[in-house]
Amino acid sequence: MPLIDMYERPGFMLRRAHQISAAIFEGSCAELGLTQAQYGALTVLSLEPGIDQTRLARALAFDKVTVLRVLRGLQERGLIAREVSESSRRQMAVRLTPAGARLLKKAELPVHEAYNKLMAPLNSKQREQFIALLQQLTDGLGEEARAAFVPLARPASGR
C-alpha cells in the first residue's frame, strides 16, 4: 500500500484531527491547566451535581479507568468532591466544589476561542456539514466503541 493511501484513511485523519484538537484546546487552556477530558467532566458535573461515576463515564464516553484518572486529578486540585452516593453505597457521587465552578467559568472564553480556532479552516456551511457527518459516523458506529456513550438528557431550554 502506498503511504499516501494510509494518510488518506479515515482512521489516520481522525486520529490526526484529534491530536490537533487536543493541542489547540490545551494551548488555549494552558493557563488554567485544563485538558479536554477535565473540561468535559467539569461541564457534566455543573449540569448534574451528585452524578455517580458510572453515569459520568457514560456521559463522556470514558471507560472506568479514564474517568477515575480524570476525577483523581480534579480532586487533587480541589475542583471536585467525591463521596459515597446516598442512593447506592457502592457508587461514588461527584460534585463540583466552588473552586471547580470558578475554574469552569474562567474556561468559557478560552474554550470558545479553541473551538473557533479549530473550526477556522471551514466556512459556516462546511462547519454544519462536518458536525453532521461526525454525528452520523458516531451514531452509526457507536456500538463498536470500547466505552459506552449515554448522553445526559438535555434540559428543557435545549442547551
Score class of each variant (00 low, 15 high):
M1Q: 11
P2Q: 14
L3C: 03
L3S: 10
I4W: 11
M6G: 09
Y7P: 02
E8T: 09
R9E: 15
R9G: 14
G11N: 15
M13F: 09
L14W: 15
R15I: 15
Q19M: 11
A22Q: 10
A23T: 10
A23P: 01
I24N: 04
C29M: 09
C29I: 01
A30Q: 13
A30L: 06
G33N: 04
L34E: 02
L34V: 06
L34Q: 03
Q36N: 09
Q36T: 09
A37K: 14
A37I: 03
Q38T: 01
Q38E: 15
Y39W: 12
A41R: 01
A41D: 00
L42A: 10
L42C: 08
T43C: 06
V44H: 02
V44A: 01
S46A: 15
L47D: 12
L47N: 09
P49H: 13
Q53D: 00
Q53G: 00
T54H: 01
L60E: 01
A61C: 13
F62V: 08
F62P: 10
K64I: 00
V65T: 15
V65D: 11
T66P: 07
V67K: 04
L68E: 12
L68K: 12
R69H: 07
R69W: 08
V70M: 07
L71I: 02
Q75I: 05
R77I: 05
R77S: 02
R77T: 03
L79Q: 07
R82I: 05
E83P: 00
E83I: 07
S85Y: 01
E86H: 08
S87L: 13
S87F: 12
S87Q: 13
S88F: 06
R89K: 14
R89H: 03
M92H: 00
M92L: 06
M92W: 05
A93V: 08
V94E: 00
R95L: 05
R95E: 05
L96E: 06
L96F: 03
T97A: 11
P98T: 08
P98K: 14
A99V: 02
G100M: 06
A101N: 12
R102K: 12
R102A: 14
R102M: 04
L103N: 03
L104D: 04
L104G: 06
K105D: 15
K106T: 03
K106M: 09
K106C: 01
A107F: 08
P110D: 06
P110I: 04
V111H: 05
V111R: 07
H112Y: 04
H112G: 06
E113T: 10
E113S: 09
E113Y: 03
E113P: 00
A114W: 09
A114H: 09
Y115M: 11
Y115L: 13
M119K: 00
M119L: 09
M119R: 00
A120L: 10
P121C: 07
L122H: 07
L122R: 08
S124E: 10
S124Q: 06
K125T: 11
R127H: 05
Q129N: 05
I131N: 01
I131K: 04
L134M: 14
Q135C: 07
Q136L: 13
Q136W: 10
D139K: 04
D139R: 07
G140A: 08
G142V: 04
G142M: 06
G142L: 05
E143K: 15
E144W: 12
A145H: 13
R146P: 12
A148Q: 12
V150G: 02
P151M: 04
L152A: 11
L152W: 01
A153V: 14
R154N: 05
R154Q: 09
P155S: 12
P155N: 12
A156G: 03
S157D: 15
R159I: 14
